[in-house]
Design a binder for these strands. Structure first.
Lengths: 355, 355
DNA sequence: GTTAGCACTCAGACGCCTTGAGTGCTAACC
DNA sequence: GGTTAGCACTCAAGGCGTCTGAGTGCTAAC
């Protein structure tokens, strides 16, 4: 029974300290925590009996549970949530770790795709959970540059560079035109399409088709514009370009996932490209870290996992998401500060690329 | 005791039929197979007692085992190997499935990266195991085309297209040069570098540095060539560009991987980019399907898994690997014919691209 | 409000027994 | 000779009771 306050609200300092100790102990050991172990390991200044009373209150308030009568307690999702809210703000990553991460980022070539992978693997390495990152996805794609490259006898590659970074490549049939002629074509396309969005490319395509007679010879031009339009549209439509996940092995090591059934469900959810995309919308674009615990992730299958996510990038321009996935029994303070730090780094990188 | 022949060699027809039946039953049920179930399900024309005698012979010859005295038998790796060798050649994929796979390949745009992913996911879907595919990796990369694109105020993207297909993108500092100037630079680079290998790019770089005075203004040219050299070298050195794996969830469903410890080891091996690269070398380049069962994979961690792999592509040009990963208890005939068929399709695609 | 003491609870470990699927052997059969 | 029926034997898996110990909740004293 809750003696004093059943109402939600700030806990008494002593209760908060005990909840905190229970969570930290449970995170460390994955074993239900009993009153005696708690007193012996943490200098709480009270006896086990008192701790038991407080535990009973915390349980009545919904922050702890029992697996069975004579077992120790472990936190509920609500308990973790309270804990997270109590520590979310003021923590910074240890300087040593900052340095380590910066060092890793320094190693990599400025090749855009590498970053996201690096972000994911860095997060995984530092937090010992799974690291996730999506590529920076802008609101709507624009053509930066088109290039055509002869490619054997019959084919040519069309290389499309988008303002937002990604490079796309598709095949065209070139009927053996020499490179010089392809260059001319590319020049025309660049003149017409540089800076254009998908809709604008569509419009140009219609124009081309209307005054067909004049350009009829250049069926290849039409073909190219068709492909470009399709690529830009595809880019706009793609929910999330790609989710890089690294260190899923770390999650497999957690005892809560010892039998692979639970694990399978989590993996299945993660494979769904649209899922993380959906979470993105729930993230404010302010760029601060958000924590989703258990059911809060919006997926029943994920009831045993927690996500610590942050968006990065610049709202008008490109944005993406990165973060960490682990069991709800997660070292939240460390995970939060790591995610915050890495998302800061990624902001710098995005600014640099989409300046 | 083996009554007749302990020597390896072709089994008597009846023994072979029984081994075959045991394997098929075990593949289907994942349960040890007893003599009575076998007789009742498969029309063998003999009594359980006879089957038991044969089983004892097969066990003495190393093709079957016992988990304990009173349990049914299941195949050893050697048993699977014999079975695989007895069926490897003459099987073709069912026309329905051929059609289904072709259909899937028809759906995809001719964008090179998609193929490998598609191959992997098709294999996964059809065989209900995990599908693997590496990108087509040629012996040594050559520059096809260089392009430079202004990129905000300070930076430029250098886009490098290799003869072998891949497109690389890195950032350069452009000090605000206009696009026109970048085009001129790119033109110079194309003139000099098109068709060149990494070593040849190196040579050009040395040239540039030697007669520094003349071109001193174009530090950016030097910077660009440096990057290009590095990219081509990296491409040459990369063991395997990327391994696309799809449908690992399928493997997680197999009862032999019910506890995730075993699974974890397998995943860990797969993450090692060099591992599959090593297997590539063990594949003859004739393009036929190779089967690695348990320890044959060369990794102790993989003792419970089997790989069915084929190389694809053209020896002199680009080659890659694709295949299927599953428990040793795998439907080999189906897996083999599927892998063979898909690798045939990939051959066509590679011919088309690297014509 | 805190604490010591004590009765109570219950998962997990251990040992025991039973069950049944499956074997290996032997002797009869063709 | 190979094949088969019969039978004793084996052993994992499951059910069942017991024991143990960590941990609780309650009550009464501080």
């Amino acid at each position: 029974m809750a003696r004093r306050k059943d109402r939600p609200g700030p806990l008494e300092p002593r209760s908060a300290a005990i909840l905190r100790a229970i969570i930290e102990e449970y995170v460390a050991t994955a074993q239900p925590v009993g009153s005696m172990t708690l007193v012996s390991k943490y200098r709480l200044g009270v006896s086990p009996a008192t701790v038991r009373n407080v535990m009973a209150e915390l349980e009545a308030a919904g922050y702890l549970t029992h697996s069975h009568t004579s077992a120790g307690r472990h936190p509920t999702d609500a308990g973790y949530r309270l804990y997270v809210e109590s520590i979310a703000d003021n923590i910074a990553l240890a300087p040593v770790e900052q340095l380590m991460i910066r060092h890793q980022f320094g190693q990599v070539e400025f090749a855009s795709e590498q970053w996201f992978r690096l972000a994911a693997s860095t997060l995984a390495g530092v937090t010992h959970a799974a690291g996730l990152a999506t590529a920076a996805k802008p609101a709507a794609g624009r053509v930066r540059r088109v290039d055509m490259v002869a490619n054997g006898t019959r084919d040519a590659s069309l290389v499309l560079v988008l303002v937002e970074g990604p490079v796309k490549q598709v095949l065209l049939t070139s009927d053996g035109r020499p490179q010089a002629q392809l260059d001319t074509l590319a020049q025309i396309l660049n003149g017409r399409l540089a800076g254009r969005s998908a809709l604008e490319v569509d419009r140009y395509l219609e124009d081309l088709r209307d005054r067909a007679p004049e350009h009829a010879a250049d069926l290849m031009l039409v073909q190219a514009v068709e492909r470009i339009a399709r690529l830009v549209h595809e880019f706009d439509a793609s929910a999330v370009e790609d989710i890089f996940s690294e260190g899923l092995l770390n999650v497999m090591e957690a005892p809560e996932f010892a039998r692979s059934e639970k694990l399978r469900r989590v993996f299945a959810v993660l494979q769904d490209r649209h899922y993380l995309g959906g979470l993105v919308r729930r993230l404010s674009t302010t760029g601060d870290v958000h924590v989703f615990i258990g059911r809060e992730t919006g997926h029943e299958e994920m009831e045993d996992v927690a996500l610590v996510l942050a968006s990065y990038g610049r709202p008008g321009r490109a944005t993406g998401v990165l973060g960490v996935l682990g069991p709800t029994r997660l070292a939240y303070p460390h995970a939060i500060s790591t995610v915050r730090y890495v998302s800061g780094l990624m902001n710098e990188l995005v600014d640099h690329l989409y300046a």
